[in-house]
Structure formats: C-alpha cells, structure tokens
Design a protein around this nucleic acid. Sequence first.
DNA 1: GCGGTTTCTGAAAGCGGTTTCTGAAAGCCT
DNA 2: AGGCTTTCAGAAACCGCTTTCAGAAACCGC
Lengths: 342, 342
Amino acid sequence: MTVQRSLKRATISDVARLAGVSIATVSRVLNGTAPVAEETMSQVNQAIAALDYAPHAAARTLAGRRTDTIGLLLPEISGAFYSPLIHGIESSAREAGFDLLIHTTADRFRERGRIQLPLDEHNTDGLLVFTDRLSDAELARFSGRGFPLVLLYRTAPPTLDIPVVTLENKAGARSVVEHLIVEHGCRRIAFLAGPSGNEDSCWREAGYLEALRVHGIDDDPALHGPGEFDSEQARAVVAQWLGQGVSFDAIFAGDDDAAMGSIQALTQAGLRVPEDVAVVGFDDVLLAGLMVPRLTTVRAPIETAGRQAARLLISLIQGEEVERLVLLPTELVIRQSCGCDR
Amino acid sequence: MTVQRSLKRATISDVARLAGVSIATVSRVLNGTAPVAEETMSQVNQAIAALDYAPHAAARTLAGRRTDTIGLLLPEISGAFYSPLIHGIESSAREAGFDLLIHTTADRFRERGRIQLPLDEHNTDGLLVFTDRLSDAELARFSGRGFPLVLLYRTAPPTLDIPVVTLENKAGARSVVEHLIVEHGCRRIAFLAGPSGNEDSCWREAGYLEALRVHGIDDDPALHGPGEFDSEQARAVVAQWLGQGVSFDAIFAGDDDAAMGSIQALTQAGLRVPEDVAVVGFDDVLLAGLMVPRLTTVRAPIETAGRQAARLLISLIQGEEVERLVLLPTELVIRQSCGCDR
DNA sequence: GCGGTTTCTGAAAGCGGTTTCTGAAAGCCT
DNA sequence: AGGCTTTCAGAAACCGCTTTCAGAAACCGC
C-alpha cells in the first residue's frame, strides 16, 4: 500500500545545498533584501528552478510576521450582490500581492467550549468586515489591539475610529423615489425594508421618507414591509398585500433582489409592471438590465466599493494614513419598470 | 509618536508560564492529543481565558503540516453563477473546519522573473479547480505530487485520476427536449451550442441528439448553431436563421443566456413565444423565472455542486477514498416558454 | 602598503507551535 | 512490599523561513 500523502517538497536548505551557499543567501535572492553577487544569484536561481522550489508560506509568515492575506467577513453569500463585491476585493488584493480569505458568519459554531473567532488575526494581516453579526465589542477587541480593520456598508461605533466604506444610500433612495413622484405621479409608494438594523436599509428608508415629505405625501405605515433584501421574502410580502387589498401604485424595493420578488408577485397576480404598479430597486445588479421589464434602480458601485475597501485595508496594513470615511456616489438608472421606456 | 503595529499577542509560552506547566501540556489541552489531568487542564484553560490566547495559525501549520484551508481557483468572479457556487463551497468547508482561500486566474502575473503559481500548495491542503486556464500539464504537476485536487465542471485527462464534480447535462438536456417533443409535438427543434470544446455543451448536445433519436426524429445539421452561452450571439444566430427562412418549431438553447437571446430575436421578428416557436434553456438562473414568458429550463444545482466538491476535496485531504466522478442530477423546470402555462 | 569603508556571505537565533522521548508518580498484582 | 504497567508532564528536537550579527574579501584614497 502506497502512502497517499503529499510528497515532500524542496526546502530552502535543499536549494542552498545544491547551489553551494547558505540558506541566508537563498533567502536574500528570494526577497531581494540584501545585495547578492551576480554569479551567486544565478546559481541560486538555477537551483530553485531545478528543484521546482517554492517557499513555504507558513514558515515565511512565522518568521516574517506577515501573512500577505486579508480576510473578508460576510454574513452569507447569496443573491446577485456578493459576486461583484468579492470580485472587486479579490482583484484589488491580488494587485497588491495579497491573498483573500473568506469567512461567513452564517452559523458560527462553538468548538471545545470556546467561541471560535470568525477570523483570527493570526491568519490575516487585516480584516474587511461586512457583516453586522460582529458585535461592537468584538470590533473593539480587534481594533484595540491595533489590528487593521475596515468596515464595509456599515459604520463604526464613534469611539472606535475604524475606516468605513459605504454608499450614498440616502441620496440615491431619495432620487429614485422622487423620480416616481415627479415623473410618474405616484402617490402611494410602498417600501420594502432590508433586514432590521441594516444600515443601508435605514438610510434608504430615510431617503424614501424625505422624498415623500418634500413632495407633501404622507407616509402610510401600511406600505412598509420587510423585504429582507431577498426576492422570496419580498414576493411573499407583496403577495400578502395584494391578498389583503392594500392599494399602491409603486414599490420602492430595498434592493434589486426584493424588486425582482415584487415583480414576480405582481405578475402572478395578473398585474402589469409598470402599467399597473411601478417597481424600482436599488443596487443595479447585472440582472437588473436584462429582466423584463428592465429595472429602474439606483446604481451602487458595488465592485468599486470592494476595490476601495481592500485598498484601504492594505494601506492600513502597510502603516499608511487613510481616510476615515469613503462615501461612494450612487446614480439613478432609469429603465422601464418605473414607467419610462429607455 | 506611538507605534501603530499590532500589539503582541499571547503565545503558548505565556499560557504555560501563567498556568505553571510546560508548553507541551498546553498544546495537549488545546488539541486533546494526550490525556491531561482534570486539574491541570482547568488551570491551563483559565490561563488561556485570562490571556485571551489563540494559537498562531502559521506556527501550527509549520509544526503540524496542515493548513486547514482549501483553495478555490476560478477564472474570474462575475455573473450570477459564482455566487451560489462560492456559497456552497464555503459553507461546506466551514462545516468541516476549513478556511477558504480564493484565487482568480484572470491575469496571472509574473513576479521577479518566475511565474507565480496561482495557488501554492503550501498555503492550502488541497485545491478546487474550476477554471480551464490551468493546463493539463499544471494539473499533472500538482497531481503527480499527491496534492489533493478536485475538478469542478470539467473532467480530468484520463491519465490523471482526479475526482470530478459535474452535472447530468445529458439527462437534463434529454428531458427538456423530450418535453418539447412529447408534450408539445415539436419536430423541428434547433440547438444552440456553447463555446466549442465546452464539456457542458457537448453533453447537452448528446442529450438533445438522444432525445431526437429515441423519438424517431432525424437530426438536421441546419438546426445547429453556435450560441456560445451568450445572449447576443444567440440572438444573431436565430435572426440569421429567420432571415434565411430556416424553419423550426422550437429552440433548445445551450443555456439560459442563449435562450434569452433567442427570444429577443424571435420577438423582434414578430414571432410569438411559445405560440409560434417554443424556447427552452438550461441552468435556471434567477432571471429565468422572472422574464416574460417565464422560461422553461433545466435546473442546474450550482450550490450543491460547490458543496459536494468541497466535501470531496476535504475527504481526499483526510485520506479517505472518494468517488472519481460525482454527477449531480438536473431537474426539468417547466414554466411558460415551452407552451405550458405554469 | 595601510587603515577604513563597502560588499558579500554564513552562522545562528528566533518565530510559535507539535510531537517524540523520557521519566516521575500513581495504581495494580502477587 | 516489590516489580509491573499506566497516567501524566516536561525537555528538547524539529517545522522552514527571516534577520541580526559578525567576519572575510574586495575596494578605496593617499
């Protein structure tokens, strides 16, 4: 019976031996940390090639005290939202020579009686925190140690001084709701909120309320529903409203996923979008422009947000000063589902 | 000026000192690798708690020769496809106590004159390979070393014996084509292939041909077109057919994107779907259920594929025997575009 | 030629764990 | 009580790399 484990790889000592130098010299050639004679260098490089040598990441980390890896903490990966986000983060990290480690907090579990940290700082040089599952206390713990942290789509407790990358949610929401009011004469506009406590959702709601107020429309609590940023949830809520005879002429869904669910519910009930009910979303995910009707929404630069956040974190890791708050602009994208036809 | 770097974390020695034991004992408590007296154990645990100690992953890796991390190699992260895939992989990995490291091969870059391996085996215990950017030679290199590898949506060169997770493309394709034949009496069914050489596409075509044969329908080469799994390509091909007067009563598009393009072309030519021409796709992306008409298609269990692949890889890492081939079942999803009305 | 750089290289001390080996103390048997 | 096995704990040898320290050789100006 043959052994199945990985064959032993060449180490720095093997390279040193073959090249007839010390391991320190090999290390220098590898990292360019000190001058090495031309000839020595080429011998070492030949040995490296001959042995197909690659340095052992963990040993490097241990000796060099850096992991060249950033961590990303997510609530869970679903819907059309995370794809561009991860893409932005990954490409930005890769450009800077960092790896990306992803963790979700979906159901954090306990092991051996202790809470396992979601991402231990030992594994990463810094952490990108998206989820709101990480409590302020935990944030403080990391932050207090001087561990580099950047928050995505969520602000830090004011005492903590952690950089934040987020969107102009309120302005975006207000603009799309105003579009419904001004261009399409909507007066009864429903709102599907995100998960309770979600900051994006709060600001979008604030923008929605502001638009209503500015145009003298009273807010009707009956028109607020839990969309949960989820198409299935949204579908259920809208279906229920229709069943109960709640009347509305437009829906501002908290995000595009919820907008899709809303449209499903309306269509299933025999209503036409946008003729009977206008529907608008938020995010402008890829599908938004492909569905029928094409969705009017607010473009959130998700990939850019990811890219920026990763960059910020890496700057922080490298000891540079960074802005405390990056607010990314949103943009109204008018298509068909509001009643326009572009 | 204060130093910004991370504060020093407690090490196993600190714990040992505080608990009045040796580091070996602390390690045993941590890993449960050898019996430790009740009282000693509790002292150690107290010290761990008091110091807020967490073991250093890299040190552990170096000494213990495992990383507890699996790598995922992707061509690039885009579209609605990768979200469920990553989610499946991540959750499966997490359940098994593994981390997930993601790399894309988008533009692999060179550094210091050598090609950087996309994911070095030092960083991970095994690798999930999705991309076809990794050549057979590179696969052979990893595999030859006994490094655990699992392929996703792509079969291995027969000499290599690497496990594969993929879909029952053929059965799925056959079922949807048979549906067209049996339920809707279609006889002239066009097929839009994916990119040439794409394995998914080959099998779907095989299923399509089988369905035709079983029902005594001759295959007409004029009804095969290059859909490229792309809506624009598919639109062009179908438009051309219509211009040439090619006659057909149904289109089996290689995937949902191509199906959307086909529908566009038909609609623009004044034909009705499904009354004049039925259209079916493959994948069941989110949009499929939202478009008009709602698309009849074959559901591909993307998230499940990710989950299974990760499980397979982890079994492999743990030295267990695994199947060489996991074929995930697909499921016919009947909606409207075939002529049904569900 | 001679002290004083500069340039290059090697020995060795960690980094923070795991694991083997060895030994002391405790438990068991006759 | 004496010899035997168990049970538990510590010393020390790694794991593969980075980095400091120190030294040898080459180079410098005069």
